[in-house]
Amino acid sequence: MMKFIDLDNRWEQLVLALVVLVFAFIVSLIIKFSINRFVRIASSKLRVDPTKYKFLKNAVDFLVYLIATIIIFKSIPELDAFGNGLLASAGIIAAIVGFASQSAFSNIVSGIFLVIFRPFSVGDRIKVGQLYTGDVEDITLRHTVIRDFENKRIIFPNTVISSEVIINSTTSDEKVCMFVEVGISYSSPIDKAMEIMRSEGENHPYFIDNRSEDDIAANVPSVTVRVIQLADSSVQLRASVWAKDPSTGFAMKCDLLKSIKERFESEGIEIPFPHRVVIMKNQE
Rank of each mutant, 00 (worst) to 15 (best):
I72T: 10
F73M: 13
F73K: 05
I76Y: 07
I76A: 08
P77Q: 07
E78L: 13
D80T: 03
D80Q: 11
F82V: 12
N84L: 15
N84I: 14
L87D: 11
S89Y: 13
A90D: 07
G91H: 04
I92F: 12
I92P: 05
I92L: 14
I93H: 07
I93L: 15
A94D: 12
A94E: 11
A95N: 02
V97P: 00
V97E: 02
F99M: 01
A100S: 05
S101F: 13
Q102F: 10
S103N: 06
A104S: 09
A104L: 11
S106V: 00
N107V: 06
N107M: 04
I108T: 07
I108Q: 03
V109W: 01
S110Y: 03
S110R: 07
G111T: 10
I112N: 10
I112F: 05
F113E: 07
F117Q: 11
P119D: 01
F120V: 13
S121Q: 14
V122F: 06
V122I: 15
V122K: 12
G123F: 02
D124F: 08
D124W: 10
K127L: 09
V128Y: 00
G129H: 05
G129S: 01
Q130C: 00
T133R: 13
G134F: 03
G134R: 05
E137D: 13
D138E: 13
D138V: 09
I139E: 00
I139R: 08
I139M: 01
T140Q: 04
T140D: 04
L141E: 04
T144A: 01
V145M: 03
V145K: 05
V145A: 09
I146W: 01
I146C: 02
R147W: 12
R147M: 15
E150P: 02
N151S: 15
R153W: 09
N158A: 07
N158V: 06
N158M: 02
N158G: 06
T159A: 08
V160M: 07
I161R: 04
S162F: 10
S162R: 11
S163W: 04
E164M: 12
V165H: 07
V165C: 00
V165P: 04
I166A: 06
I167S: 08
I167W: 01
N168P: 06
N168L: 11
S169R: 14
T170H: 15
T170D: 15
T171H: 11
S172Q: 12
S172L: 13
D173M: 03
K175E: 05
F179P: 12
F179I: 08
E181T: 11
G183D: 12
Y186N: 02
S187Y: 03
P189R: 10
P189D: 12
D191V: 06
M194I: 11
M194R: 13
E195Y: 09
E195M: 12
I196S: 10
M197P: 08
G201F: 05
N203G: 09
N203Q: 11
N203F: 02
H204Y: 01
P205L: 03
Y206H: 13
F207G: 03
R211G: 04
R211L: 02
S212E: 00
